[in-house]
């Protein structure tokens, strides 16, 4: 029994790191993604091209590789090693997820019929009023399901941070395998499942909350 608790406590600590990566990535990538989506929808062709290229590269290269790049390139190429492994992981995750989120935002915004904006205009509304009072909620309603998917993927992608020795929950469990214990590794699934279960319920609630209208 004491071994079980020892493992559980160790895994919980690793799970704390998992949650930090998840939380920080979400808080930073959600707004950054919106900015990137504006870039990819820009009327200025060069701006649009730059942002589209960034999104293509980030989505086209494995996240694991991006983590390595953020971790090693500043030190090897510029001679200024990155302050911490954890920070390197966060930077890579934020950039990667911001690009995925940006595509969700873009699809959500472009799906709103232009007639909505035009109706706002002929009613004398300002750009800000049209965005906040007409478009925004319709976009939110449309993006909740794909956002839910992406955010649930993020929960599990956090495990990639271990490639640069960030000690999240899987890394902790792997240390036990050195002591010839394989079950802690499988035990981590419980933590992920509970976390994802909670998120699923939250997204279901959000979806239900906006089900009073149809877009």
């Amino acid at each position: 029994m004491s071994l079980f608790w020892e493992v559980t406590l160790a895994l919980l600590e690793g799970f704390g790191t998992t949650c930090s990566i998840f939380g920080l990535t979400l808080v930073l990538a959600l707004p950054l993604g919106l900015l990137i989506s504006f870039g990819t929808m820009s009327k200025l062709a060069p701006v649009k091209a730059v942002f589209k290229t960034i999104v293509w590269i980030i989505r086209g290269v494995p996240l694991m590789l991006q983590i390595f790049v953020v971790f090693y390139v500043p030190g090897f190429v510029f001679g200024v090693p990155i302050a911490s492994r954890f920070m390197a992981a966060i930077i890579a995750f934020v950039i990667n997820y911001a690009c995925y989120f940006s595509e969700i935002y873009r699809a959500g915004i472009e799906a709103i019929p232009f007639g909505q904006t035009e109706a706002g205009r002929v009613l004398g509304m300002t750009k800000g009023e049209i965005f906040f009072r007409v478009t925004l909620l319709q976009v939110v309603k449309r993006i909740i399901p794909p956002m839910g998917n992406e955010i649930i993927t993020l929960v599990k992608d956090t495990a990639l941070a271990r490639v640069i020795m960030v000690v999240e929950i899987i890394k902790v469990a792997e240390k036990f395998t050195a002591r010839a214990m394989i079950w802690p590794l499988f035990y981590t699934a419980v933590f992920y499942l509970i976390f994802v279960g909670v998120l699923t319920i939250l997204f279901g609630k959000a979806e239900k909350k906006l089900s009073y209208f149809k877009v």
Binding site: P113, G115, A119, V122, G124, Q138
Partner: peptide
């Protein structure tokens, strides 16, 4: 914005805010 309020427009496809 101010000048267009001289006119109102009813669209073929209504464009009500859902």
């Amino acid at each position: 914005r101010e000048k267009r309020l001289r006119f109102g427009l009813v669209f073929q496809s209504f464009n009500l805010f859902p």
